[in-house]
């Protein structure tokens, strides 16, 4: 069976091609040797990425952009808001996954040992995050039943938006300090490197 005509509308369960000719992409799943659509949308064929690989079939979902439903997965870059800080970990609410806002808020945890790359055992969570901070982080595991585990142990990860005690948006000074423009006081944060 050849691939169905591209830009054709498919519904879940419809056969779109054979597994030995195509790779299954987003919205396509392989059952035995058959590729089956799992979403409503149009069929898109992507050229093979290199020699010896097969072209990919994927579905352009009608209602949502690719990647929906947005679930945190290992390796996803997420934007999260700090809702609780304890000596061992910071609890956050994941608001954006890979640049797309979520429909439902997911809980995440940044553990002490995942805050930065060096001197992991000397991390003081209070000197890294404060309530209400917006943090850029990466999902490192599906975590426990309450939350996903996140990490900020990369230069470009960490706090990207924070307000000082005076309630003013602070500016980063270096990778672990931020400056309040109103009071000129400095506060500690694990600051993300601007990219």
């Amino acid at each position: 069976m050849e691939s169905l005509r591209s830009d054709m509308y498919v519904t879940p369960g419809e056969r779109v091609g054979e597994a030995d000719k195509f790779e299954a992409g987003y919205g396509v799943c392989q059952i035995n040797n058959i590729l089956v659509a799992t979403l409503v949308g149009t069929l898109v064929q992507e050229k093979s990425k290199g020699f010896g690989t097969k072209p990919t079939l994927k579905i352009k979902s009608a209602k949502y952009s690719e990647g929906h439903p947005l679930l945190p997965d290992i390796g996803s870059k997420v934007t999260a808001k700090v809702i609780r800080v304890t000596p061992r970990a910071a609890s956050v609410e994941i608001l954006v996954i890979d640049g797309k806002p979520v429909r439902e808020v997911f809980k995440g945890t940044i553990n002490q040992q995942d805050v930065r790359q060096t001197e992991v055992d000397k991390v003081e969570i209070y000197k890294c995050f404060a309530l209400g901070d917006i943090v850029l982080a990466e999902v490192i595991s599906l975590g426990d039943r309450h939350s996903y585990f996140l990490s900020t142990a990369k230069n470009e990860l960490g706090v990207i938006h924070a307000k000082s005690k005076a309630g003013v948006v602070m500016m980063p000074v270096n990778w672990q300090e931020m400056l309040c423009p109103a009071t000129n006081s400095k506060e500690f944060r694990k600051v993300a490197k601007e990219s």
């Binding site: 369960g13 799943c29 059952i31 979403l39 409503v40 439903p69």
Partner: peptide, 11 residues
């Protein structure tokens, strides 16, 4: 389910 964009292998 189909409208919600939940992945299904059949209708």
């Amino acid at each position: 389910l189909a409208d919600a964009g939940v992945e299904m292998t059949d209708i």
